[in-house]
Nucleic acid binder design. Structure first.
Lengths: 140, 140
DNA sequence: TAGTATTTGCGATAGACTTGCGTTAGTATA
DNA sequence: TATACTAACGCAAGTCTATCGCAAATACTA
């Protein structure tokens, strides 16, 4: 969890100008447990009285992603979500009922990945693994 | 690989009328090694001089999917792809350079899935696993 | 072959994302 | 602190994927 000041220097380090919208969005990312979609970001900025239209927010997250601050992911919705790249690659557990998205940090598929890589002569750079189902809360 | 006649009976079995577009698309699915997007299907129909607009093709694949003939998947693009359901659940190996998509049939993550399910008290109904990288051809 | 229910074509619509362009505003330098 | 440069933004228009309603066409059944 970084404060406003830290977010600013994080932006500077990435050679991005620290505008109000960018600072606020970095704070949002730092304090968020779930990967965020663009609409959520726009709503958040509005709540904080920071004006930023649709196109601007898309440009901001694209810049973040290009500079390696965030990562773009896709969870079988027809839209992208974004999460902090610093948290490392991980997987997601997605509830089909309430939509809750949980991170899974321990990755157990390295061996499988190596096997596939050798067998198919494919250089694997990344992977995406998602589990879909019903979370503990929604089973009740 | 099924011929025109077999595709027709496959449609009948699924209680779908065998229209030219549907027969042609079943043939395309049967002869295709990759999951298909809607634009590819439209192009294919055009080449065979079968008129079918965007809305129709979407309706066709939705009908196929609803009847269990095909499965709808998403591969980190903001669009759907469809593949024959009969080939069973499997994973994908995607080349970032040429876009080639290869199927991986042997799934080795059941144990991991069980472990997550117990730890998080989550009922897992399905999972998606994709590997991204560079295929053998594109390494040269 | 006629009747009917399904399917299609067309047009409109919606949502996610992008782009061009003129204006605004961070930031480096003096 | 004032100035200048360039990155970033706002707005509007446009693209692409996907869906929907309705009238016309067509596959199947009897």
């Amino acid at each position: 969890m970084l404060n406003k000041h830290d977010c600013k220097s994080e932006l500077n380090d990435a050679q991005l100008r620290a505008t109000p919208a960018r600072i606020a969005l970095m704070e949002l990312f730092e304090n968020s447990l779930e990967p965020l979609d663009v609409q959520t970001m726009i709503d958040y900025l509005q709540k904080r009285n920071i004006t930023a239209d649709n196109a601007t927010v898309f440009r901001i997250v694209n810049a973040f992603t290009q500079k390696g601050l965030t990562r773009q992911i896709q969870l079988h919705e027809n839209k992208f979500r974004y999460e902090l790249a610093a948290r490392g690659e991980h997987h997601h557990l997605i509830c089909n009922v309430c939509g809750k998205i949980e991170d899974i940090s321990d990755c157990k598929i390295e061996d499988f990945q190596d096997e596939i890589s050798k067998k198919k002569k494919f250089v694997i750079k990344s992977h995406a693994l998602e589990f879909y189902g019903t979370c503990n809360n929604c089973q009740k």
